[in-house]
Amino acid sequence: MLYRKIAIIILISVIAMLSACSGASTSEKIYDHLEKAVTLEEAFEKQQDEIVKLEKKEQELYSKLINLGMDEFDKIKSVAQEAIGVIEKRKDKIEVEKESIDASKEEFNKVKELIGELEEEKAKEKANKMYDVMMDRYDAYYKLNEAYTQSLKLEKELYSMLQKKDLKQETLTKHIKKINESYKKVLEANENFNTYTEKYNKLKKEFYEAAKIEVKYEEEAKKKNE
């Protein structure tokens, strides 16, 4: 079992709307929903560092376990139980993360009806593409969440197995192989999710330009303050 950092690309947020074209009330409403959806993902973003720390902690425990001999079986059981505790904490973080995405999706869905009210065809075209990509992004996240949750289940089973004195090496090897295969799916799902996030960030910028909504992006503001 190898520790793998799952790199998550976060949605680009807008600090403030500076101006909007005359009569662009529909665009402004869409803007409000889009930026609220980003805000609702803040809890998702906050979980990332904590999850990485917990993954590192578990890897340290796993490394400690494989260096223990059977004459230290009580120690093996203690470390394995601690590792299960870390997995449970990771599971809690993943649940908070999913709740954040669920809330973001519910808010984002509010733009669907508004898109049809846009008068500028280019803005409407960009908005429809943006909407479709974001919905694909949500679907990609749920697949990532499912794959990661399955990996946690397999890891928990591993630490339960390690607490058995009659555990056979062949059984252990097969289970570790399952975990590694499971994390391959996690990495693939993560890459897919990140791809859709990048596409959405690009399309959101293009929509704001087409709708003549002038905004200041957080990343740009940070550069100016450096």
Rank of each mutant, 00 (worst) to 15 (best):
V133F: 01
N67L: 06
K91P: 07
E146F: 02
D74K: 10
K91H: 11
D102L: 07
D132M: 15
Y142K: 04
A80N: 12
L65I: 10
K110P: 04
K105T: 05
E72K: 14
K98Q: 15
D166H: 00
K165S: 07
E120T: 09
L158A: 07
Y138A: 08
Y141N: 07
I84K: 14
S151D: 03
K105M: 14
L172P: 04
K93P: 01
I176S: 05
R137P: 07
E155D: 09
D166C: 00
M70E: 12
E95W: 01
K110A: 09
T149E: 11
L118H: 10
F108R: 03
S78I: 02
M70D: 13
D136L: 06
Y141S: 07
V86Y: 02
D139N: 15
A140Q: 05
S100M: 06
K153Y: 06
E125Y: 09
E72R: 12
N145S: 08
Y148A: 04
V186D: 06
E120K: 15
Q163M: 14
K156S: 05
T149Q: 12
Y148C: 00
K177S: 07
Q163A: 07
S104F: 03
L68D: 00
K174W: 02
K98G: 08
G69M: 09
L172S: 02
K177D: 08
L144K: 07
S151G: 13
I66V: 13
F73D: 05
A103F: 00
A83S: 14
L68A: 04
E170V: 03
K126F: 10
K165V: 02
D166I: 03
K178R: 14
L65F: 08
E95K: 14
Q150M: 11
E181L: 07
S78H: 08
S100I: 08
I84L: 09
G116F: 08
K91A: 14
L172K: 05
K98E: 13
E181F: 02
D132F: 07
E82P: 04
G69V: 04
L68C: 01
I101W: 11
L152S: 06
E99C: 06
M134W: 02
K112S: 12
M70N: 06
I66Q: 12
E82H: 07
Y142M: 00
Y183H: 11
K153W: 01
I76D: 02
L68Q: 07
E99P: 05
S182D: 04
N128L: 11
Y62Q: 05
K177H: 08
S151L: 01
D92E: 15
D74C: 04
A83C: 06
E106Y: 09
